[in-house]
Nucleic acid binder design. Structure first.
Lengths: 214, 214, 214, 214
DNA sequence: AATGAATGAGGGTTCATTCAT
DNA sequence: TATGAATGAACCCTCATTCAT
């Protein structure tokens, strides 16, 4: 119980059959893409355990066996998907955040674009979250990477004198959690409220919390 | 992060087979208790889907069939457990929080006792979290109740002039998320750091964020 | 390639799920017996790899799942069967052999009863032989035990002065092989020839080969 | 244990798809050879049922599809291999046996060279033996041919007055079985003992058993 | 001839749930 | 109430074989 589910991290380890599953032909690449797309929908709709590989291939329009040309197991495609989606999420948010004039604004923009992304891609939120119980390593890695970015921004802001100087990893995790929970509440559950307003209010809390001391 | 739901009747209660499963004899009550204890360990260690009824009864030292004397399904015992643990968490945190001199302190104490509780009872954290994928109603209810308590404290604080007056549900969710994430990071993952210090730092962020405006 | 298929010996090792599969009720004992009988027929007719567990349970008149109440895998029931049949074979031959007046006669009677047994129970011959490719440990153990008995008889005969004194393990294996091959040729393939005559001829060869030297 | 079958046409030859799979080019011949070599290793190491076509082609360094340019099925290549190996065994033993001064010596030399061959080529022993459960016709043919050679030598010896005159097929099978078992025991399992000595001891048993009667 | 992706029947195995005692 | 055997739907995965290039 020290680190729950550490055993699900086994997927990274040496695989008995380490044949290269990268497609070599154009047709192969198309099939792989179809499988990943279908899996995203299936996992998003039914969750990892309710999802079946045959449903994935049915959606993808391929034979059942073709799945195993590209993946060794349901876990493996799930893992691939988690990592891919983690990247998609960051690719959506990063450029917007980088255009921000200062780090506090960056946090506001980050939260706002995150909320929008969750609303548009509920299946991505769900898949990443379910990784906690399927592929713990990817789950943890996703949040550690996310929080590391927050922390970097905080340190930049401190260095530039925009915010207080004593920011730490604890602040970064606090902010990360805030964002994720607001994503759940106002991205998944309540899809009516005004996203900008929510981001503005939360950011105001943050701005005061991080303001330079006198 | 305290005082989870009271057992206000919720929508999904209706059971197809409504026979009363409350034990009538002392022996029955003992069996039920053994099953719940065993299930907590089994679900905590292996997760809902890896856990099996037969493993639970094996741990409990009862026959497989006895399980169905008290529960209709694996989902049902899991649900019972989630609610029970939600209460346990509340029972641990509530009295400490209520003794706080002001609401900001209450938040600090709440976070600190939550972090401690997670460290002591990782299986409870895990079971409640996994409810997101097994018993969504209980999961949502747990966090809505938790956040409602936070919000109540914020409003009390505002009414008493301890903090700014424009606090809203958004603030409450932001704070709830902060607590949960810090629980994961410093309760589950890193079990070495000083809990008081973490709670103090996070609370300082909050105190500044919620300070009365001039 | 030193000892082919040593890995099939793994069945003896600690099993992850070491629950006791011995039936506790009379009904359970009946089911187990039905499964073993059905498996003997199925393996004997179709061989290990062609045999299917569902065919075994169909023959036994039980549900598919009941198979797994008593065995963990197809290999396991096969192993149980090999050992059981190895015993049956010995139980058939041993009493006859023990009644022989001298060791040379014992060998003749042993061969003759072996040939008869193979004719009556071709499936037993087949299952034991196929163990070479399914459960090597049992296969080897079967023949080592068989040959050990031959050797014991040879040594008894030598001690009593019935045969030459320099008999060794090599003689025992030679005789064992002789018997097995005659079993295949005149037990399995040609089921018309006179068994006593065959045993007499082979025994005469042996008697001369083992005669005391002058 | 020598001179297995010449390729006299046997009953099960008929192939549904009688297209000629003999390679026409030099490149084709090389591929065919690589496949056979790879199959010998794969079948020898893993056995027929554990072996997979894709593992064979992987070992051979060819594409999976290329297999079917030369063979119609897994059974077919196995059959080809059994016959080829049966010939290899014969080619190893025959010249040595033919140089023997008399038939009893021939048997000794045959056994000794057989034991040596098994030690060197365990995979060949295994593949021929497994044919009992994969390609029964080849298996039976192998041993019938082998025993026929033994019988021929016995009759030659009897005609020349080297051994007793009443030798029969039964004697030939007895001797064949003796050789095969000694091959298993001292060729496969125990690879330390002195082969010449074993052959000498077994041959002495035989020589006495077959000695002319007074 | 060679390549490697595609196919899908087939079978082993799990385990929540029911049932007879 | 307790027991433990019985049930069978569900699903993952393998891999021999075919096919398109």
């Amino acid at each position: 119980m020290d680190q729950p589910q550490t055993d699900t991290g086994r997927a990274e380890e040496a695989q008995g059959d380490a044949r290269d599953k990268t497609p070599r032909t154009e047709r192969g690449r198309r099939t792989l893409r179809k499988l990943l797309d279908a899996a995203a929908v299936e996992f998003g709709e039914r969750g990892f355990h309710e999802a079946s590989i045959s449903a994935i291939t049915r959606r993808a329009g391929t034979a059942l066996g073709s799945f195993y040309t590209y993946f060794d197991s349901k876990e493996e495609i799930f893992q691939a998907l988690v990592r891919y989606m983690s990247e998609q999420l960051r690719d959506h948010v990063t450029p917007l955040v980088q255009a921000a004039p200062d780090e506090i604004s960056a946090e506001r923009i980050g939260l706002e674009s995150y909320l929008g992304f969750v609303r548009e891609h509920k299946e991505i939120y769900r898949i990443i979250d379910e990784a906690e119980f399927v592929d713990y390593a990817s789950y943890r890695s996703h949040y550690e990477t996310t929080v590391a970015r927050v922390r970097q921004r905080l340190e930049n802001g401190a260095a530039r004198g925009e915010i207080r100087g004593d920011v730490s990893e604890i602040h970064a995790w606090a902010i990360g959690g805030m964002n994720v929970f607001l994503g759940m509440r106002y991205g998944l559950w309540d899809t009516e409220s005004d996203i900008s307003e929510i981001a503005a209010i939360a950011n105001d809390l943050l701005a005061n919390g991080l303001k330079k001391r006198d």
